[in-house]
Design a protein around this nucleic acid. Structure first.
Length: 259
DNA sequence: CTCAGATCCTGTGCGC
DNA sequence: TGCGCACAGGATCTGA
């Protein structure tokens, strides 16, 4: 916060989408950073002009360096930053699989950006997530797992946490959404919140690539109850965990515990 | 309305 | 040892 972006170097511009270089320079170059926050998995960096919007995708990360030249392969963007004392540092955007994304928004109304305006609720900032889930599941014949992974319903729940939350709530991922009772919605809502809180407290889930901002892996993987445990015994009942594709994603659950 | 399948991408881990 | 292939995942799009 308060630091000034002096320059941005782009080493390639094809992430998931083309990086809007000129627009990002317009928003950030010569400007000081007034606010940094996130909505869903999008990081927003605010200046007087507008916002840079950054999604890290699967394998993206932002790290500080004293050197402006890329230190690792797959460093695609480098922000040159000056603090109040005049000290220069460099924020490197690195993303091997280039599933990440950079976008921009002019003016203060970031909520209207096309990537952000259709997003559902923040699960940890919604007091009645149970009601929200109940209303969102009525008259829906989709399977419940695809509903909680859909960012139009709520954000932040990817494949790993969807599997874990459904196990915690004892709900079968293939169950049709509108067949969930009110109490099942309540159980699912609190399971989602608990799962996310526990994962955040553990520093996230590292399967392979993920690193926290200090460069360490996240330790939630050791707490996973079902994800990645196909054919291993359910930790609650001992029956074998099932792996089955749902919505194009491998889905892990216990046939016996999850109804 | 819903879903399967494809798409974007690279590192990894497997079988042969 | 080395090659080819399947797989992982967030978000979105197409066609059925």
């Amino acid at each position: 916060l308060g630091r000034k972006i002096q320059h941005i170097d782009f080493y390639r511009n094809d992430l998931r989408d083309r990086i809007p270089k000129d627009e990002l320079l317009n928003v950030l170059k010569g400007q000081s950073i007034s606010h940094v926050f996130r909505r869903s998995k999008y990081i927003l960096i605010q200046s007087r002009i507008g916002f840079a919007i950054i999604h890290l995708g699967m394998t993206g990360n932002l790290t500080y360096h004293t050197c402006g030249t890329p230190q690792r392969p797959h460093t695609h963007v480098v922000f040159k930053v000056k603090d109040a004392t005049g000290k220069i540092s460099y924020l490197h955007y690195t993303d091997p699989r280039r599933f990440g994304r950079m976008a921009f928004h002019l003016g203060p109304d970031w909520q209207n950006h096309p990537l952000l305006k259709t997003l559902g609720v923040e699960p940890l900032e919604t007091s009645r997530l149970d009601d929200h889930l109940y209303h969102h599941t009525r008259l829906k014949s989709r399977k419940i797992k695809t509903i909680i992974m859909d960012n139009h319903t709520l954000v932040g729940v990817g494949n790993i946490y969807a599997c874990e939350a459904l196990f915690k709530a004892s709900i079968n991922p293939f169950k049709l959404a509108d067949s969930l009772s009110r109490s099942q919605c309540a159980r699912l809502a609190s399971s989602i919140q608990e799962t996310l809180k526990q994962a955040i407290a553990a520093g996230g889930t590292t399967i392979k690539d993920f690193r926290t901002t200090d460069g360490n892996p996240g330790y939630f993987a050791i707490s996973l109850q079902v994800y990645g445990r196909a054919n291993q015994p359910c930790l609650r009942c001992g029956h074998a965990i099932t792996a089955q594709v749902l919505g194009g994603r491998n889905t892990f659950f216990c046939h016996f515990c999850q109804k």
